[in-house]
Design a protein around this nucleic acid. Sequence first.
DNA 1: GTCTATAACACGATAGAC
DNA 2: GTCTATCGTGTTATAGAC
Lengths: 244, 244
Amino acid sequence: MRLKQAFDGEEGGETKRRLLAAAINVFAEQGYNAATLREITSAAGVNIAAVNYHFGSKQALMRAVFHRLARPVNELRLKLLDEYEEQAGGRPLSLEQILDALFRPIVFLSRERKTGGFALVRLIIQVRALPQPFMNSVLSEQFDPVASRIVDALCRSLPHLTREEVFWRYDFALGAMLHVISDADRGLRRLHRLSGGLCDTDDPARITDELIRFVVAGMRGPGQDQTSRKAGEERDAANTRAVT
Amino acid sequence: MRLKQAFDGEEGGETKRRLLAAAINVFAEQGYNAATLREITSAAGVNIAAVNYHFGSKQALMRAVFHRLARPVNELRLKLLDEYEEQAGGRPLSLEQILDALFRPIVFLSRERKTGGFALVRLIIQVRALPQPFMNSVLSEQFDPVASRIVDALCRSLPHLTREEVFWRYDFALGAMLHVISDADRGLRRLHRLSGGLCDTDDPARITDELIRFVVAGMRGPGQDQTSRKAGEERDAANTRAVT
DNA sequence: GTCTATAACACGATAGAC
DNA sequence: GTCTATCGTGTTATAGAC
């Protein structure tokens, strides 16, 4: 029953566990293509043949890595949504709650190198940069349920937007989050450098704070059907507030 | 004088030109690591040894590709900023103008496969997903000047934000743009699929429109020092407007 | 400038002993 | 379950003829 266990990894003994842990780091660090099974097995301290025995192939190992990393984050997101919805008792959630459930689990995890949250973000970006057909199923399976829940919640809390507009803005929000999180990586840190050190991309609370403030305002902005007259009024009002 | 020409490519004859054009496509399609010089030279219809003769190495070829793709986009961005600032005659630019200069060149170019704009976005995301030290210099050289101009303009137009907050929001805006643009790639298209076809990620005018509306609202949102009382008022006002 | 031929090495996967 | 040894194939880079 090897295939049944292929996505887990807690099961299957020490060798399999060490292999998965090493694969997380090497895939995240080198990318799927550049990562070699020799480097992974060497880092895990196991024989090179163990990958094929325990996982079947390099692709299957990659899928197991992704599954392992994404599952706890998305489970936590859904759990937070459940809690907030129970508190709300039928009323729409606040935007802050929805975005907190979406962002906080992955932002905080991403700053803890030990637990592999750092690796998850790198792998998500890698899959977006070089879409690989064999990853599509894992990606959908892991992220689609959360996306649906979030978008539905956003629609309830943003009645001035069409469902299409909510989808666009959900995607913008996700992009902003992934971008800023991935920027803290060793070898990149463009925001930290560009800002002359002003922006500390290692502080997850600060990132979440700035991110939610920006996205909440962006979500609340007028939709396409709001007239330009109204948008103009809001703009003037905002400028007046800012200056005074 | 090979090195002097290494970043250009218009110069240097037909073989070099064809090589660079093929390299743009193959690097974008396969990623730097997975792309092989055999595939590039084969697509260009030139001999495999030509890469080393004309560019010196695979890394140098990649740098030349990036240089060639990024330069026209950033030159156009700076040209737009110049025009808008001349029109404004010393007054701060509108947010719409600043973001138009930042987004429009790359969003529109990215939907034209022929001219390689599609390739530029993929390569930017690839470099972010797998930072490679030999790319840092090209990246800074190409993008830092634009980033500085944009952030300075934003600071003038957003007096209610600190410079640090402007940097954060600039990064969020960039991430939202790159994410949504990269999503239209063959093999990904998650937004299109998740939204049940509602969001057409192939329409650059629509993308720019939605993007600028979202980002403008996000930028105008209250900063960290704005009291929660004030933020609460704005939120209530927004909700009231939305419901009525 | 462009070619062929090849050096020197790394890869994923597997067969088969233990 | 874990090992060694190896197959077949791929890579970048270069040497040297034309």
